[in-house]
Every structure is written in C-alpha cells, then in structure tokens.
Simulated assay, not measured.
Amino acid sequence: MNTQQIQAIGRRTIELETASVNGLQAFINEDFCRAVQSVYDSKGRLVVSGIGKSAIVAQKIVATLNSTGTPSLYMHAADAIHGDLGMVQSADVVMVISKSGESPEIKVLVPLLRNFGNTLIGMVGNDQSFLAKQADIVLNTTVPQEACPNNLAPTSSTTAQMVMGDALAICLMELSGFNGQDFAKFHPGGNLGKKLYLRVRDLYVHNQRPAVAADAALKEIIISISGNRLGITTVVDPQESVLGVITDGDLRRMLENDIPLQGVHAQDIMTHNPKTIVADAMAIDALDILRKHDITQLVVTDDNKRYLGVLHLHDLIKEGLI
C-alpha cells in the first residue's frame, strides 16, 4: 500500500465519521430535550452503563459530566447484573448506551432497571431495538455506516455516541449556570487548572521588588536593575504610585544615543505609563498582555494603583502556562 492509498483511507474514515456526526442534528429533538430536563431535575446522579466499546464511551461521558457539574457514575452492564446495581439509588436517572440495543447483557439489565422505577434513557443506534422500546427516553445515535471497511468495528457509531454525550453535558452545564470558577474547582491540577485559578498575586510575591525614586542617580538605577535580576526597576513617588519604569534595554539605548552620564536621573530616562496589572488578576490575563505588547515584565499594583512588585514572563513559563 503506497502513501496515496493510506492518505485516501484516512480521509475516507474522517469523511464517514463527519457525516455520522452531522446526521445527529436530526436527532436533537423532543426526546433529547426530555433527557436533558430529566437529568437536570433529578435529585440524584446520572448512572451511565454500556457493554463493549459503548462501555468505554460511557466512561468518557461520565468523566465529562462530572467535570462540568453533573454528578455521574459509570456502571458496566455486565458487572451491574453481578452486584453493581447496588450503586443505583431511587433518585438517579440511568442511561444505557448500546449501538444495537440487543446485546444479551443489555437485555438482562434493562428489565432490572425497569423494576427499580428509575427514569431510563437509552442512547441507541437502532430505534426499533429492545433497548429503544424499553427506555423512557431515546437518544438516537443511528449512523449510516461504520468507517470500518467491513461495516463491523465500532467507529462511526462510537463517535456519534461521544458527540451526543457531549451535547447532553453542555446543555446541562449551561442550564445549571456552571461557569469558569466552578470549572476551576474541579480542575485544580495540571496546566489547565493553573490557567483557571492561578492569579498574579500567587507569582509576583516570589520576586524582588525593585524600585527607585524619580531623582535616583544612574548608579542606583543600575544596582536596582542588576541586583533584582528582573531586567527592570520601577520609578515610584513617595506615596508608592508608579511614575514609570526603566529596563536594561532603556540603559542600552541611552548608551547607544551617547547621552552624557553625569547628572542622569531616573525621571530622565524612564518609560512613562508602563503596562500594569492588579494583583488579583488571573495569571493567564497577564500572559495575554505580555504577548499583545511583546514585553517580558508587568508592574503589579493594588486596586489603588500603588506599586506592589513585578511579574516576569519567566514566572509564567515556570508554571507551565506557556
């Protein structure tokens, strides 16, 4: 098989699965709305079950639901009939996922769930199947064909299940008003968590606080910049308000322009109106400012514009935000 043939197979797979996903739009119907509302109104959890590849999809859907504010549990269909049904509580909604809706394990599980009296949602690729006929609500995930050349291996069907699960999760997320702060509570770890909760105040406090007065001489300016290893010093007035900044780049440009060094003071070479950020701002917002203005330092102030310290690009790199 040559490169062109491999590429053709890859593209055909994507085209078939894309068509299957697009076809789901026809199934965002009244039953879909009922499914969303039943989970939203429930005083319990959403218990999601399946067998085979559908079981793997069920685990992913549960993970998405939990991370977006809908309490959910995964229950393997085979394990359910050997004791795991004990996790289903009276207030729970149960969703069973199956392409055929006719798997032996599903046929055993569904009547048991019906006896429990829980609302049963069937996410199924055959609306004439046992599961579809037994479910209170049907989420139709029928696909024209699998991407598998033999039309056997679950490919398009599992993609459709995943997308339908995402649609359910996002609707529930928006219904409940789940916002970025809520998301941060559930994602405290890793780079994603840091983007959601890390603030400027968590970073700048580990740096030195370089500052000079407006009448500071050149020697004092150089010592302040080099001693604090941030490549910058802030020029402040007696009330600690920011007047400007001087960077090591400003010093180099001053030397290049042959400015007489005798009698030079901070106010003569400082950059007025430097970019600042309040300590309570999100660290990811600070990164946006640095990128937008192509700079490496931000002056940190309090809500009254008083100088607190300096945030450096390296602080954000160290935290993995870049």
Rank of each mutant, 00 (worst) to 15 (best):
I6E: 09
I6A: 10
Q7F: 06
Q7S: 09
A8N: 14
I9Q: 12
G10Q: 13
R11A: 11
E15I: 05
E17A: 05
E17Q: 13
T18W: 11
T18K: 13
G23N: 08
G23F: 04
G23R: 07
F27L: 00
N29Y: 03
E30R: 12
A35V: 00
V36S: 04
V36R: 02
K43I: 02
G44V: 01
V48K: 02
V48L: 10
G50L: 05
G50A: 09
I51N: 05
G52R: 07
K53S: 06
S54K: 09
A55W: 03
I56F: 12
V57T: 12
A58W: 00
Q59H: 04
K60M: 11
I61M: 09
V62K: 04
S67N: 10
G69A: 10
S72A: 15
S72F: 01
M75N: 06
M75Y: 03
A78R: 11
I81Y: 10
D84N: 13
L85A: 10
L85G: 14
S90W: 00
D92L: 02
V94E: 03
I106D: 07
I106C: 06
L109Y: 06
L109H: 07
V110C: 03
P111M: 05
L112R: 11
L113A: 05
R114M: 03
N115W: 00
G117P: 05
T119G: 12
T119C: 15
I121L: 08
I121K: 04
M123H: 06
L131N: 03
A132S: 04
K133P: 02
I137T: 03
T141P: 00
Q145G: 00
Q145P: 00
A147Q: 00
A147Y: 01
C148Q: 00
N151F: 04
L152M: 09
G165T: 13
A169Q: 11
N179K: 10
A184Y: 01
K185H: 13
P188W: 08
G193E: 11
K194P: 01
L196R: 02
V200A: 05
Y204N: 10
Y204A: 12
H206M: 13
H206I: 14
N207W: 08
N207Y: 04
Q208W: 12
A211T: 06
A211L: 11
V212Q: 14
A213M: 15
A214D: 15
D215Q: 15
D215F: 14
A216K: 15
L218E: 12
K219N: 14
E220I: 14
R229Q: 15
T234E: 11
T234F: 08
V236L: 02
Q239F: 09
S241C: 04
L243N: 12
G244S: 11
V245C: 12
E256C: 06
P260K: 08
Q267W: 14
T271L: 13
T271V: 12
P274D: 09
I277D: 02
I277Y: 01
I277S: 02
A279M: 03
M282E: 06
I284V: 13
D285N: 06
A286R: 01
I289N: 00
H293M: 03
Q297A: 05
L298A: 00
L298V: 01
V299A: 03
D302A: 01
D302F: 02
K305C: 01
Y307G: 04
V310C: 02
H312K: 02
L313E: 03
H314K: 05
L316C: 01
I317H: 09
I322N: 14
I322E: 14
